[in-house]
């Protein structure tokens, strides 16, 4: 059975191992999730489980969503995400999945939305080298040359230029689950995860473990 989880990034701290080693960890407030729909090959063409997470005010839910939740006899939730699974056996609408679906020591992939950086230049966005700041160089953080000369007479496609940076979907692979607090619905993941505090985090089994 595939393991997956939705959560909110709460912040970072550290953890001490038995030998005194300090491990940086991210605290994720994870689950509980409610299964809102089960998709099957016969009906939808593929197998997937749609889960909802997070409390929401009744007044913030629009009418079509309210209808869907009411039909399944559930209370509306803030986020809905779908996870593909090999088989939908064992999932049915209304099931609750808690953080105990994850196990300590397992490797996971974490998906989040990175922090927005706004309109950024090529130095910040692509790590271009900066020019000399003194000795009258007049070339500091600029773009530099765009291309060659009359031949080829055009700028190559995909040329790295300034533009919007951040708020991308970012996946970090093979992070270790260090600790699970079932009573607090919290999971500690080794290392950093993308996005700001409070950002939605998707967790699933490591693809390339």
């Amino acid at each position: 059975m595939k393991n997956f989880m939705l959560g909110k990034k709460a912040g970072m701290t550290q953890l001490f191992l038995e030998d005194g080693q300090a491990i940086p960890v991210t605290v994720i407030e994870a689950g509980p999730l409610t299964v809102v729909q089960v998709k099957t090959t016969e009906h939808d063409g593929y197998n997937a489980v749609k889960v909802a997470f997070g409390d929401v005010k009744e007044s913030r839910v629009n009418k079509p969503d309210k209808g869907l939740y009411a039909k399944a006899d559930l209370t509306p939730k803030k986020f809905v995400r779908e996870f593909k699974v090999e088989s939908t056996d064992g999932y049915k609408v209304g099931d609750v999945i808690t953080v105990e679906a994850l196990k300590e020591g397992m490797l996971i992939d974490v998906i989040g939305t990175s922090k927005g950086k706004g309109y950024a230049g090529t130095v910040k966005r692509y790590g271009n080298t900066i020019g000399p700041l003194s000795h009258g160089s007049k070339y500091h953080r600029g773009l530099g040359a765009m291309a060659m000369h009359t031949d080829p007479g055009r700028v190559p496609k995909g040329k790295k230029m300034p533009g919007h940076m951040g708020t991308d979907r970012v996946t970090v692979q093979n992070l270790e689950v260090m600790k699970i607090y079932a009573d607090r619905n919290a999971v500690l993941v080794k290392g950093a995860v993308p996005g700001p505090k409070g950002g939605l985090i998707m967790i699933q089994d490591a693809k390339n473990a």
Binding site: G11, M12, T13, L15, F16, E29, R184
Partner: peptide, 12 residues
């Protein structure tokens, strides 16, 4: 209480 703080509290 803040979740991170409450988790830290048990290890301090």
């Amino acid at each position: 209480m803040d979740l991170v703080k409450s988790i830290e509290q048990s290890m301090i």
